[in-house]
C-alpha cells in the first residue's frame, strides 16, 4: 500500500476533552500520513500533552475519535494499537534498577519478546545520542534529566515502532544532544512523528506545525 492510499497513521476528529468541568480540548482535529512529521505547538497548559495521551488511551476523549493506522482507538483495540506507538514523555520515569535494566524491561513483555535482538543496537544508539556506556550499570535514580530523556528515547527506538509520540524530549538536552535527536528523526523517513516542542528551530526540517488552540478558562455546560 503506498503512502497516498494508506490510512492516516495518526488521526483525531473533533476531539473534546474535559478535566472535571474544565474544557481542555474542543473540536481538535489533526491527521498525519505514514512517514509524515508534525510539530505540536501552543501555550503551556493548552492540551498538547493531552493530545499525545489520547493516542495512547491514557486520556479518554469526551467526544470525537482517535485513530491509529485507520483503526479507531477503543477499549477493544487499545491494547493492540499501543504496540504500534513509541512514546517518550517530557520527564520519563524509568522505574527502578539500572539503566540497562530499564532498557531491557520492555522486552520481557510478550508483545516485544520477538524484538529482543534489537538490544544489540544499544551501543550504536548510545553513541548516536552522546551517551556514555558507563551509564548502563548505573541506577536510574542517579541519572540526570537529559540522560533519562535520551535513554527513554533509545528504549523507544529499540521497540521498532513506526509511530512516535514525543513530548518535549529535548527539553533537558544541550545543543549537541538536541541536534543528535533532531538528526535521528530527520533521517527516519519511514517514521511518523508527532512532536511537542518549544524549540522549533531545532526541528526546522519539519515544515508542518499544528497549533493546539488554547481553550478559554470556562466550565463545560452541565449535562
Amino acid at each position: 500500500m503506498d503512502a497516498v492510499s494508506a490510512p492516516n497513521a495518526l488521526e483525531t476528529n473533533d476531539l473534546e476533552v474535559r478535566f472535571g468541568k474544565q474544557v481542555v480540548l474542543q473540536g481538535f482535529s489533526v491527521s498525519l500520513k505514514p512517514g509524515e512529521k508534525a510539530l505540536l505547538t501552543g501555550p503551556s497548559g493548552c492540551g498538547k500533552s493531552t493530545v499525545l495521551r489520547c493516542f495512547l488511551g491514557f486520556v479518554i476523549p469526551d467526544a470525537g475519535s482517535v485513530c491509529l493506522d485507520g483503526v479507531e482507538l477503543t477499549a477493544a483495540t487499545v491494547w493492540h494499537l499501543r504496540g504500534r506507538v513509541a512514546y517518550v514523555g517530557q520527564e520519563p520515569d524509568l522505574g527502578t534498577g539500572t539503566a540497562a535494566q530499564a532498557i531491557e524491561r520492555p522486552f520481557y513483555y510478550r508483545s516485544n519478546t520477538g524484538l529482543r535482538h534489537n538490544l544489540d543496537r544499544v551501543p550504536e544508539l548510545f553513541e548516536r545520542f552522546n551517551l556514555s556506556r558507563d551509564l548502563l550499570p548505573k541506577d536510574v535514580g542517579s541519572l540526570s534529566g537529559g540522560e533519562k530523556q535520551r535513554i527513554a528515547l533509545v528504549s523507544a527506538i529499540l521497540l521498532d515502532r513506526r509511530i512516535f509520540l514525543l513530548d518535549e524530549v529535548t527539553s533537558a538536552l544541550d545543543r549537541v544532544s538536541k541536534q543528535a535527536v533532531a538528526g535521528y528523526f530527520r533521517s527516519r523517513e519511514d517514521v511518523t512523528a508527532l512532536i511537542v516542542a518549544h524549540d522549533l528551530e531545532m526541528f526546522s526540517f519539519i515544515p508542518r506545525v499544528v497549533e493546539v488552540p488554547c481553550q478559554p478558562r470556562r466550565e463545560a455546560p452541565h449535562e
Partner: peptide, 15 residues
C-alpha cells in the same frame, strides 16, 4: 508515570 510507560511500551495489564 512509570506504570503508564509500561503500558505504552506494550505491557498487558497483568504484565
Amino acid at each position: 508515570k512509570a506504570f503508564l510507560q509500561s503500558l505504552a511500551e506494550g505491557a498487558s495489564l497483568p504484565e
